[in-house]
């Protein structure tokens, strides 16, 4: 499902904007990440896209059609094509995963035979078959989160909206989540995911949008954004031939405007990650001095920025 958001805005009181003038285009079958600090307006924006909240201004088109009163698409019809996991959605503790899935499947009016087949399938997909008859209250946090996402996919939506799905998950759970989302995308489902844990998103999402105070700060392909904001940050990794040159290297670096971020060992060779204040000309000068001081440099490589670096740069002190 392709989503077009035009000048979307939401105000709760008629004075302050929770989301303001948000315009995005989300291609069908992509994973779209919405990034921002708490209170940036991510959840509000996602709730509007999920049709559970009405926007104050703007419109959202789903495959070119708007939904709601007086629109071509009925909200309930559209909801059959959307799977939405809101922030902090709890489970019914006394229901088993199978019962929980059956309950939501019936809320989406799935025919009985199709529903039972779908339950079986998502239980397998989300590795919950062994716990199908256990009470949800007895499941681990990761399993509960998987069950919640499974619930959103039960009715085979073409748009999956997940608000902070990795919140509270351990590394294994996050890894599982990434695997599942990748699989969902492969089925042609458009995924919109919000998170403040950026490492979860930078190599998962096809596109991201960074929000601050209800407004879109930057949006687009992850690679493009990183490339666009990389220029401001020059981090290089120096690999030295042996440890004897390390002291000399540190001595040379201390004479320049260079910050040693990390010392490490890779493939038995000492490595230094340095941040150079002054761009590539400064790095050339540093390298020349290192060679002159007898430091045996094997390789010098510039480290690529991550989404997190871009976000840090953009955020600065503008946390809501």
């Amino acid at each position: 499902m392709q989503i077009e958001i035009e000048h979307l805005g939401k105000t709760y009181d008629g004075h302050d904007w929770a989301v303001h003038d948000l315009s995005l285009e989300i291609p069908s079958g992509s994973i779209f990440g919405l990034i921002g600090p708490n209170g940036a307006g991510k959840s509000t924006a996602l709730r509007m896209v999920a049709t559970v909240m009405d926007p104050s201004t703007g419109r959202i088109a789903y495959d070119g059609h708007s939904a709601g009163e007086g629109q071509a698409l009925r909200t309930t019809e559209l909801r059959r094509r959307i799977g939405f996991l809101g922030d902090g959605n709890p489970l019914y503790k006394h229901m088993t995963p199978a019962e929980y899935l059956r309950f939501f499947g019936q809320c989406f009016e799935l025919p009985p035979a199709k529903l039972e087949a779908a339950i079986e399938q998502v239980l397998v997909t989300f590795d919950l078959t062994g716990k199908a008859d256990a009470q949800a209250g007895a499941l681990s946090k990761g399993m509960r989160q998987r069950l919640l996402i499974a619930r959103c996919l039960l009715h085979e939506p073409s748009l999956l909206i997940l608000d902070e799905p990795a919140d509270g998950l351990d590394p294994r759970g996050r890894s599982d989540l990434r695997r599942i989302l990748g699989r969902v995308r492969d089925q042609g489902v458009t995924v919109i995911i919000s998170s403040h844990i950026l490492r979860e998103l930078d190599d998962l999402c096809d596109q991201v949008a960074i929000m601050q105070r209800g407004r879109l700060v930057v949006g687009g392909q992850v690679g493009d954004i990183i490339d666009r904001y990389e220029v401001g940050r020059f981090v290089y990794e120096l690999r030295l031939l042996d440890g004897s040159g390390l002291a000399a290297a540190q001595e040379v670096l201390s004479r320049h405007r260079v910050l040693i971020e990390r010392e490490s060992v890779a493939d038995g060779l000492p490595c230094l990650s340095i941040q150079v204040q002054g761009g590539e000309a400064m790095m050339a000068e540093v390298l020349s001095d290192l060679v002159a001081a007898g430091v045996k440099v094997v390789t010098v490589s510039r480290l690529r920025s991550r989404l997190e670096d871009v976000y840090d740069r953009l955020s600065e002190d503008r946390v809501n």
Binding site: T51, V52, G88, P90, F104, C107, F108, R151
Partner: peptide, 12 residues
């Protein structure tokens, strides 16, 4: 327990 909220996003 906020369990009603997810139901508002279903087809009902």
């Amino acid at each position: 327990e906020n369990t009603l909220q997810p139901l508002t996003g279903t087809a009902l």
